[in-house]
Structure formats: structure tokens, C-alpha cells
Amino acid sequence: MTDAPVLVVTSVDDATADPVAQRLFERGVPVARLDPADFLGAEARMSARFGSHGMSGRIRTASREVELCGVRAVWWRRPTPYRERAGRPEPIARFAVNEAGIGFGGVLAALPDCLWVNHPWRNHAAEHKPAQLVTAAACGFTVPETLVTNEVDEARAFADGYAPVVYKPLRHAVLPAADGRAGMIWVGPVVSASLDDSVAGTAHMFQAQVDKVADVRVTVVGRWLFAVRIDGGLLDWRADYDALAYTRIGCPAEVEAAIHRYMAGFGLMFGAFDFALTAAGAWVFLECNPNGQWAWIAEQEDAVADALADLLEKGRI
């Protein structure tokens, strides 16, 4: 398998993929970078055959040809979503996009005998915060009291009963702000008086605010853990990166053990865990992004890139 390539599935402008691809290149490990959205253009082609033997075929990009059954590892980073690019009208465009997702995406998801970092269907499952919270509790993490509801009475009772409470969307969202500019929703405090019947408008997630002294990000690559303490005094540290200070720290043995149980539970090789660190030293689970960013933290960038290159080169845990 020494000539088997590592397939890096991502967009061309994914700068986080570059240092890992560069490392593999320098080590002489074959790398093929693919953005599956290119299958809907002229840039990439695929033919896959199926029968009693299983699957065979190949992918061609502008610069690589990859045998479907000869892939060492797949790094599923940030591929461009399938989109109609030929200007075809609906419902033709939707048909083409849906067929691409199940066809091209389905062939990629069926690649045999390779290491997945991570399999996209595992990512999909692990992105659901309710599943994260249930799995985290089962793995032994301390989990904040959390409510997902469309009932305003339940939301008010929760906000009063567990004050202070925060609201956080179940999924990253970009929405227009009141002034029409693009906006997003940070984690923010909630008082029951601010809640109204519009809670019925969709699912809303409320969580008891953890009395934290700092945040911790743990980036997991296979068996390797990279823990970084984040100091900045912010409820949601993503709101102001300029205010943050990062320090590499160790991970308590019981937290590390719980992380490995969690990773195994979701079948993940990579994960980015967020914890709130209390004054008493407890690590409280907030969430785990199965495809989180990591390279912006200079204190860990080289170490994580090295670990990813090691894992992908090895092609097994």
C-alpha cells in the first residue's frame, strides 16, 4: 500500500489542508486533492462499477488519477457543497445536485479499506448537539443542564430554575441582522422575561451557564490529544479572537479517557472538543465539533498538522 494515495476531500481554498498536504508531499506520500463539487463541472470525473466483486473504478482530477479501491486514507475536510453551476432551471438543477450527492458522494463514502478522518456520515451524526450531549454524559463527562424546546413555558421555567442560562443555536447559522447586514448568533445570556411565544417558531436550545474561569479546546487526532487553555473572559470566545490567549496544557486522565470513549462512540478519528474550566478545576463538556478548525491556534498548529500527516500516512490508528 506504499503507493496508495491519501485522498484529501476539500475545496481548493482550504488553507488548513495545505500544511498537511505539504507534509505528506515532503514525505513522498502520494496525495490527491479532490473537491467533489467539481464533479458537477468539467474539473473532475468519476466512473464506478459494481458487481459481485464489489466496487471498482477511478476518479480523475486535473492533476491526479485515483483507483477507487486503492486509497490509503481519506481526510474529509471542507468540500464545497454540490451546487448547480450550469444555470439549469429547477427542478432540473435540484435533480442534478441530488443525484450528485448520492452518486458521487455515495461512491466516495463507499471507498473500501481506508482510514477515514472522518467519514462524512460519522461527521453528520456527530454534528447533532442533542446526540453530543447524550453521548458525552454516557462517556462520563460533566454535562451542563440543557433544554431543547419549542414550549415557552418550559423555556421560562428553565431560565428561572437554572439561572444564569444561555441560548445557543443548535447549528452555526448566518442570518441577516436587523440592519440587513449579515449576522450570526453568539452564545448569550437569557432571562425568562425576554422569552415569548415565538419560542414555538422552531427548536431552541438553552443551557445552564457554567461558572468558568477559562475555556479549553482539545483537538483530537487518532490517539493524540492537544489541549489548549483559552483565556479571554468571554462567554463565547469566538466573538473576539483578538482578546484570546492560548496556553498548551495537559489533559486530566479521566477527561482523556472520556474523550476516547466519545470518539469511539461516534466512530471519529478527529474531533475538536470545547470545555468550560471551573475554578474547582472541573472540565465541563460544552460540545464537540467533529470537523472543527485547529490551525488558527499557533501554539498547536505544527503539532496537529504533524499528527494528521502521521495518521494519514500510516492509514490506520
Binding site: 488553507a15 458522494g105 461527521n123 453528520h124 470537523n291 478548525q293 490551525a295 488558527w296
Partner: peptide
């Protein structure tokens, strides 16, 4: 949260909206 000129890496600002998870 975007990386302005001179910054070099995507920060942890996105989830499945910006990429295809399947």
C-alpha cells in the same frame, strides 16, 4: 471572526453551512 489580511488560518467559525458533510 474572519481572518483579515495577515492572518493565516480559518478560525473556528463555521460548521456544516460552509462545507458539504455528505
Amino acid at each position: 471572526t474572519a481572518a483579515p489580511g495577515g492572518d493565516k488560518r480559518a478560525r473556528d467559525d463555521d460548521s456544516t453551512l460552509d462545507y458539504a458533510s455528505d
